[in-house]
Simulated scan of single mutants.
Amino acid sequence: MSDDRKPTLAEKRQMKSAARLYAVQALFQMEAAGQTVDKVAREFENFRFGAVYDEDEMAEGDTGLFRKTVEDAVNWQAKIDQMTDRALVAKWPIDRIDPVLRALFRAAGAELLTQGTPPKVVITEFVDIARAFFPDGKEPKFVNAVLDHMAREARPEAF
């Protein structure tokens, strides 16, 4: 936000949603380009959050949520990938799925494992991100099913 006022509740929600989207993009970029967490996080924070490209303004993101999600996804990647593998159908391990979905599952898994966000919120937010990347496909339903399984494993007390 460019002014000094505090963001409204709706703006805070939008910033959290943007942070989740940016986390998926950052994790994808890290894997595709072999870049480090620090390098990618700095790039996103300095050049993407709130940037304007050809008159399109990128949303401001919640920097704290973005950083925590990306760092936790990297630090907990083995456990998250195991949870994802258990949620996927047999013979389709995480390394065989679309890299965007892999990044999405890692970001969502990090939030499920390390943050207090209610699982239903995590699922809804990341299904919305899947819709943004795959607007005409079956992937959002697939993401919903996988994340529901992961959430029940990570946070069974919430169900």
Results as ranks from 00 to 15, higher is better:
residue 132 A to V: 06
residue 145 A to F: 00
residue 148 D to G: 10
residue 56 D to S: 13
residue 155 R to S: 06
residue 68 K to R: 14
residue 145 A to V: 05
residue 72 D to V: 02
residue 137 G to P: 12
residue 99 P to E: 10
residue 56 D to L: 15
residue 124 T to V: 08
residue 95 D to A: 04
residue 70 V to L: 07
residue 58 M to Y: 12
residue 97 I to W: 00
residue 129 I to H: 03
residue 147 L to K: 06
residue 61 G to P: 14
residue 62 D to T: 13
residue 159 F to H: 08
residue 153 E to M: 14
residue 67 R to P: 07
residue 23 A to G: 06
residue 120 K to P: 01
residue 118 P to C: 04
residue 116 G to S: 15
residue 16 K to W: 00
residue 19 A to M: 09
residue 23 A to Y: 11
residue 41 A to C: 14
residue 50 G to F: 04
residue 14 Q to T: 09
residue 97 I to D: 10
residue 148 D to K: 06
residue 63 T to H: 09
residue 60 E to A: 11
residue 93 P to E: 07
residue 34 G to L: 01
residue 113 L to N: 08
residue 71 E to S: 11
residue 62 D to W: 02
residue 149 H to Q: 09
residue 136 D to Q: 15
residue 50 G to L: 08
residue 99 P to M: 03
residue 51 A to P: 12
residue 102 R to H: 06
residue 61 G to I: 08
residue 34 G to H: 03
residue 121 V to R: 09
residue 159 F to P: 04
residue 128 D to G: 15
residue 24 V to F: 04
residue 63 T to I: 14
residue 24 V to T: 12
residue 61 G to K: 10
residue 144 N to W: 00
residue 131 R to K: 15
residue 8 T to C: 02
residue 140 P to E: 05
residue 101 L to F: 02
residue 32 A to Y: 04
residue 39 K to R: 11
residue 159 F to Q: 06
residue 147 L to W: 00
